[in-house]
Design a protein around this nucleic acid. Sequence first.
DNA 1: GTGAAAGCGCTAACAG
DNA 2: CTGTTAGCGCTTTCAC
Lengths: 348, 348
Amino acid sequence: MAVTIKDVAKLANVAPSTVSRVIANSPRISEKTKVKVREAMEKLGYHPNFHARSLANKSTNTIGIVMPSSANKSFQNPFFPEVIRGISSKAYQENYGLYLSTGQTEEEIFQEVVHMVQGGRVDGIILLYSRVNDKIMPYLQQQKFPFVLIGRPYNEEIHSITYVNNDNYKAAKTVTEYLLLLGHRNIAFIGGELDFVVAVDHKKGYEQALKNAKIPIREEYIISHHELEQGGEDAIIQLMSSSVPPTALIGLDDIMTFGLLKMFSEMGIRVPDDISIVSFNNVLISELSSPPMTTVDINIFGLGFEAMKLLVEKIKEPTKEVKSVIIPHKLVKRQTCKALNRSEKKDE
Amino acid sequence: MAVTIKDVAKLANVAPSTVSRVIANSPRISEKTKVKVREAMEKLGYHPNFHARSLANKSTNTIGIVMPSSANKSFQNPFFPEVIRGISSKAYQENYGLYLSTGQTEEEIFQEVVHMVQGGRVDGIILLYSRVNDKIMPYLQQQKFPFVLIGRPYNEEIHSITYVNNDNYKAAKTVTEYLLLLGHRNIAFIGGELDFVVAVDHKKGYEQALKNAKIPIREEYIISHHELEQGGEDAIIQLMSSSVPPTALIGLDDIMTFGLLKMFSEMGIRVPDDISIVSFNNVLISELSSPPMTTVDINIFGLGFEAMKLLVEKIKEPTKEVKSVIIPHKLVKRQTCKALNRSEKKDE
DNA sequence: GTGAAAGCGCTAACAG
DNA sequence: CTGTTAGCGCTTTCAC
């Protein structure tokens, strides 16, 4: 049996409560007893029992991380490790532990969240994604359980939600405008499933930029990630065979763009000479593609770090309204974009 | 205040202990009361308190995952997400939760492990790396705490350690032999820090294959990952400028190989025409490099899955000796290797 | 089959 | 400043 507070108390000749106070470093204990107790703890190799503490305290110093589905392919996307790195970094500073969801289906994950919350397993939750019509957020709200969303709540009205997000609408708009500025008029867009709020925002930004430029939106230029995964190269072949093939393309994220670059290279379509590409995220390997990709750095680490910071605030002061945060993004220009009107020039 | 077992007991007109038995689905409770109690639980929305259970049970149904340093760059390596996916998948099946280490330095991580163990926070631990002279493993052994290592213990004598590993020695040997078979005689090797056991094994396999083929080992052909990170391209420039430049190269892992491919492409060195490359891991994006890389698939998911499986066995039967497992690897031939003696032929 | 009661290890009034 | 006591919510003997 592990050594408990009582053993320490006995050895130090004090009451268990005194030991407890020493652990909490209560100012109402004399230096002398503190030293005595600490020596006893040292000698016995005492470590407080986590569950006993949590039970008495009603606080666990643990936060739950809810992933879209840790056990599916999406976890392969470097976004998740990186955002967890950010969370982890702040969590360590604040003395919080990290508990991971493991469910695979939406329903499994929902049940896990219920268990975390009702079972008092965690003090707060960070949601790593925001999905349209998700059950988890309303549940958390109704339970008045502290949580922070990475992304943006779908329903604008829900004002009480604290979230950390990029301005994805603006990022997509800027990126489109950038291509426009380079002289491109036929810009395709490969978006994510419109289930995810980020995909909705990207698409809106893209469309708005075109609208402002008075360029009609062509349905055949808009492809969903889903189609791509399903049909392999088919969607791209079709896209590039339109009556007016696009000269530029906006990719959902860097990973998908890697795939795109490969397809184009196999088809003999040169990037950026034949088509310019820009994508989102700027994960570590983005600069290693050939050619290195132009992409929007969304500061993934920062998203995680800030989310954890806000969550701690919420936990510490449950009454206080914690305001959401927008993490700035930044276009990182590398070599997948080229001005259209000087396509002869070798170097951009 | 959350609804407790007492509330349920009151509503169902039974004793708390009976409710507890219903939760555990004890056979000594009549069907009738079970139904009655379950109805009460349903009506009140009862969920057992996790910490109270853990405290009374002395078991948490949680396992700790120890990463080299979740908050540093290494987590960007897709190996970690993927191995966690494997662990996660099995953990969900077995009803275990996942707790993540967050420390950054070796010492911080060690302290976290001590807390997890002594604080009774987890029932077992999976170590995601094996490092030479690591303090954690000896500690865990001495505490007789259930753990499984992903990788191989450095010290062969330590027989009592359960681990899940690839045969990295053989993988490296095979890979070298493969290049030899293709006619290469000048094969360079970029290894990881010899701190990590896997790097040691790779190097041994490489050297043994050369020895068997009676090819002398050249010091200038062996580069450490570390040098690469430090000097950027310098190490590669130097390598390719040797009196006899290598015609083939073995890369530490896919991510590093991405970088390598980029450097070569920038230097106008063609892969595989001028140099063949083979690496390890086969992460998801490996097939997206240009050219797609030849690499050893080590079944990362399987490593995690199996580790979790073994750990559960250990936890359930602490006395039983649980034998270690070697996960088979497989060379995945793509397009970064070419036979030397027919360098004219376009297709391999 | 079910209830009463002790206890898991710690904290937090309440005394003094 | 420190000790006594009750209790966090659950499990588990031991009775009946």
